[in-house]
Design a protein around this nucleic acid. Structure first.
Length: 532
RNA sequence: GCGGGAGUAGCUCAAUGGUAGAGCCCCAGCCUUCCAAGCUGGUCACGCGGGUUCGAUUCCCGUCUCCCGCUCCA
């Protein structure tokens, strides 16, 4: 952060980011001409480039450079059965009540009851009442009192209060399949991208010829009908996730067998056998994910790990933590790393009737070699894999990258009568920047389709670089336009270029200017990119 | 979803019960111009709907969106 960057308050910075995003075409409110739709955003010309660069970065880091991770791009919508099995149809249908006195909102089972049984009875009663269309609060609460013998209290004050009748909040988008809406299936837009991964687990494993441990990765949209979308891209109703589900053996049988054999057996890579069998994979991925953010150019002081205490874990999780980023509005979750156990595969196995068990050839061979009888060896070698999940919010990463990159400089100004010359600059990682370089003919007389400047621009484009050509306005103004969108390098073709065949390469951060011959420019840029 | 605040050009703001001005941005042209703010010209706005009124950007109601707090947050 520059000197000015540190002085602006969080919300000021957020406003500046939102304005910049709109002004320069990173992100627009969806359907703005129809006054907008809360929780939905459109990525503009620069936004789509930045977003794809982030995706590519993640995909290379998590999939392409590993031989034990396979990719997937599954449908956004799935039949009801998938979401019943995953638990979303049940868990995403909370019955909520508002306290009219305190303006607080509670899940009905989290009010103050004498016993847990009463709380459960209240929830069941509430869901029935919602089903039956009961909206009269007096009728509802009197009915509940008949059931459990008293009115529940506000859990914060411990006192009686005026509650509304319960309402159901369905966090999943539901859709009838088939044009008539009749006779077809009910489908849901996926609430998280991982469920199709679990459903396709066996198909991917077999076709990718993968053996446990291995992972399945996916980047794609997910949808949640959030009660209240907030904080720009941070909580949207349609958003993208980048997820890896990594499947591991739930015990340390292999390590034990190998250790028992002989010392020369090489240990599995990255797999110290002394730890709890799956815990180290959880820690391995946490470490990998931290390195990823460093590689992405996000400094450590913007990140922290928030461990979920055991009593607060979701029903499926054995361990969980969040990687949080310091957004302008405070710390917020960027990524969740969860040890999901075998919950998901087990659920889908039970609901679908298909086996997701894995037969471990290695273990089977070692076991039979040790003289164990076949049935016992087969039993021990067959298991349902456990899953370590790393789940990143792509839109949140986008916002984090912008937040970390946003800076304001104070420049020396030649002009008098003005207080300060403020330069807005996005210090984006060069590989993330939506535009990598720009070509500026110093004068329009050096412009035109047959000019050398334009030909340089075409050359760079054909090399696959993201490049812009700008001949409008003063040269300084053009530099500023590029600073504001984070373009790392600007190439200026001037009157001397005709003679010396060289251009000025201007650096976004150092403002340095180097004279480079036209022939060397492409390789220089490629080199700078790979070194960054 | 509740409570509070706010919506006038791409941005920042102004004025007005008789349909709106400016600066910056943007576009075109001029200038041998390497770090915004030179000259000339130009485009672009009262979130949407309804009501009151002869007439509404202005007053009222609703709605949508944004911000803050609560809530929610797999």
């Amino acid at each position: 952060m520059g000197t000015l960057g540190e002085q602006v308050s969080g919300m000021e910075q957020m406003d500046k980011l939102v304005t910049l995003c709109k002004r320069r075409g990173f992100v627009f409110q969806n359907s703005e001409v129809y006054s907008g739709l809360a929780g939905f955003w459109d990525y503009g010309p620069l936004g789509v480039e930045l977003k794809r660069n982030i995706e590519r970065f993640w995909w290379n880091y998590m999939v392409r450079r590993r031989d034990n991770v396979a990719g997937l791009d599954a449908a956004l919508i799935g039949p009801e059965a998938v979401w019943v099995a995953s638990g979303h149809v049940g868990a995403f249908h909370d019955a909520l009540v508002d306290d009219k006195n305190s303006k607080e909102r509670f899940r009905i089972d989290q009010l103050l009851y004498h016993t847990e049984e009463d709380a459960e009875a209240a929830e069941i009663y509430a869901l029935e009442a919602i089903e039956a269309g009961v909206t009269d609060e007096t009728k509802f609460w009197d009915g509940l009192k008949e059931k459990i013998g008293y009115y529940p209290l506000n859990p914060n004050t411990g006192k009686a209060s005026r509650f509304t009748a319960p309402r159901q909040f369905n966090l999943m988008f539901k859709q009838g399949i088939g044009a008539t809406g009749e006779g077809g299936q009910t489908g849901y837009l996926r609430a998280e991208t991982c469920q199709p991964i679990f459903v396709d687990f066996d198909s991917v494993r077999v076709t990718a010829r993968q053996r446990v441990p291995f992972g399945i990765a996916q980047i794609g949209k997910a949808f949640r009908n959030e009660i209240n979308p907030r904080n720009f891209l941070f909580r949207a109703r349609e958003f993208s996730q980048m997820e890896l589900e990594f499947f591991v053996r739930p015990d340390s049988l292999i390590e034990q067998l190998k250790a028992a054999q002989v010392a020369e057996t090489p240990g599995l890579h990255d797999q110290p056998g002394s730890l709890a069998p799956t815990q180290h994979w959880y820690e391995y991925w946490l470490g990998e994910r931290r390195s990823y953010y460093t590689a992405l150019g996000i400094r450590d002081e913007f990140l922290r790990i928030h461990d979920h205490p055991p009593e607060k874990l979701a029903h499926y999780a054995k361990a969980a933590c969040d990687i949080e980023f310091l957004f302008p509005f405070g710390w917020g979750e960027l990524e969740g790393i969860h040890h999901r156990g075998d919950y998901d595969l087990r659920q889908h196995q039970e609901h679908s009737g298909k086996k997701f068990e894995y037969f471990d050839d290695d273990a089977h061979r070692l076991l039979t070699e040790s003289g164990m009888n076949k049935d016992e060896a087969r039993r021990l070698a067959t298991y349902l894999p456990n899953c370590i999940e790393t789940s990143v919010g792509l839109d949140r990463t986008f916002l984090a990258v912008l937040t970390a990159a946003y800076d304001e400089d104070e420049q020396d100004t030649k002009h008098e009568g003005k207080e300060a010359d403020i330069r807005i600059v996005l210090r984006l990682h060069p590989r993330l920047a939506p535009v990598t370089c720009a070509v500026f003919p110093l004068s329009k007389k050096l412009s035109g389709p047959d000019s050398k400047a334009y030909k340089l621009y075409r050359t760079l484009i054909e090399m696959g670089l993201s490049c812009e050509f700008d001949d409008a306005g003063s040269i300084g103004k053009r530099y500023r336009r590029m600073d504001e969108i984070g373009t790392p390098w600007c190439l200026t073709y001037d009157f001397d270029s005709e003679e010396d065949g060289a251009v000025t390469v201007r650096d976004r951060d150092s403002l340095s200017q180097d004279r480079v011959s036209l022939e060397e420019v492409p390789t220089l840029l490629i080199q700078k990119l790979s070194e960054s």
